[in-house]
């Protein structure tokens, strides 16, 4: 700005001094309103781009398969053992919860035969996989970010690179495989417990005979919904592993850096879960 007003003569300077004041006000207002949006958009692009790149590198390591098999087995155990309890507890409550909600409806309409079908549908197709995915992201994804983040700031990841070991093949792919497979199995187990929870709530809280519930559930022909839930589990597992590895490998700074990365990781995972859930349902149904 000063550079330009120098070479326009006195008249130009007067005009320039009038116009910029107005323009400054406009651009200041725009900056306040637009800059956060633009910055948020650019940040989102960086994150999505980085994750896509990580995804590509994962596939390159898997086709043809050349990654650390022992580490993969270890991750299977860790992921499964770590999250089984929390998935079971969550599922029991979610099943019971959904049944009580349906119970509100049924009490108003008197359509007791609907209970099994409606609860089964919401639990197997939508709410079950999403809530199990969110809990899994909190338990396993967050932990994974913290673990990789600690390795990153203590320069263990750099040490691997120096030894000629590719961190993606050694650290990321095993986690990716383990989380994809494990979340399918966990969704399966979770569905079982959610139905159990719903059945218990049906008999004890809502006061409808369990047999009515079973009958409704079985006559609903929900196999397709069940399979869709498992497919969702598979994609959620993939999304959570990529998100959590991405944030873990990007940690900077000390302990606060790890905390912030875990926070970002769970937030991004939650967004990914809802978006993936939407896409799978839209393509499937």
């Amino acid at each position: 700005m000063p550079g330009r007003s120098l070479d326009t003569g006195p008249a130009g300077a007067a005009a320039a001094s009038r116009r910029p004041r107005f323009l400054d006000a406009v651009s200041a207002a725009l900056a306040i309103a637009v800059r956060p949006v633009g910055k948020g958009f650019l940040d989102a692009c960086t994150i999505v781009g980085g994750m896509t790149l990580l995804q590509v590198r994962i596939f390159r390591a898997m086709i043809p398969p050349s990654f650390d098999y022992d580490e993969t087995l270890r991750q299977f155990e860790k992921v499964g053992v770590r999250s089984l309890a929390v998935v079971i507890m969550t599922s029991l409550f979610v099943g019971a919860l959904m049944l009580v909600q349906t119970g509100n409806f049924v009490r108003d309409t008197g359509a007791t035969s609907m209970v099994g079908w409606a609860t089964g549908l919401t639990v197997l197709a939508e709410v079950g996989p999403v809530l199990i995915g969110l809990m899994f992201s909190g338990r396993v994804g967050a932990n994974n970010t913290a673990e990789l983040g600690t390795m990153t700031i203590t320069e263990q990841v750099d040490a691997l690179r120096v030894l000629g070991i590719d961190p993606v093949r050694h650290l990321v792919v095993p986690r990716f495989v383990a989380m994809c497979v494990m979340l399918v199995l966990l969704t399966c187990i979770g569905d079982l417990f959610a139905i159990t929870g719903a059945a218990i709530a049906c008999q004890l809280i809502v006061g409808i005979d369990v047999r009515v519930f079973w009958q409704g559930l079985l006559e609903g022909h929900l196999v397709g919904e069940f399979v869709m839930g498992l497919v969702k589990g598979f994609f959620f597992g993939g999304a959570i592993s990529i998100v959590s590895c991405y944030w873990g490998l990007r940690v900077e700074g000390g302990a606060e850096g790890v905390g912030r990365a875990v926070n970002n990781s769970v937030v991004t995972s939650a967004i990914a879960i809802f978006v993936v859930n939407f896409l799978v349902t839209m393509l499937w149904v």
Binding site: M135, G138, A146, T150, I153, V258, V262, V266
Partner: peptide, 25 residues
């Protein structure tokens, strides 16, 4: 150190999310 912070964050997410589900129930 940073493991402790990671542990705290993870625990907070799991406990708080689970508490939300239980309270809802």
């Amino acid at each position: 150190g940073s493991e402790g912070v990671g542990w705290a964050t993870t625990t907070a997410v799991v406990n708080a999310s689970f508490a939300v589900i239980v309270l809802d129930f």
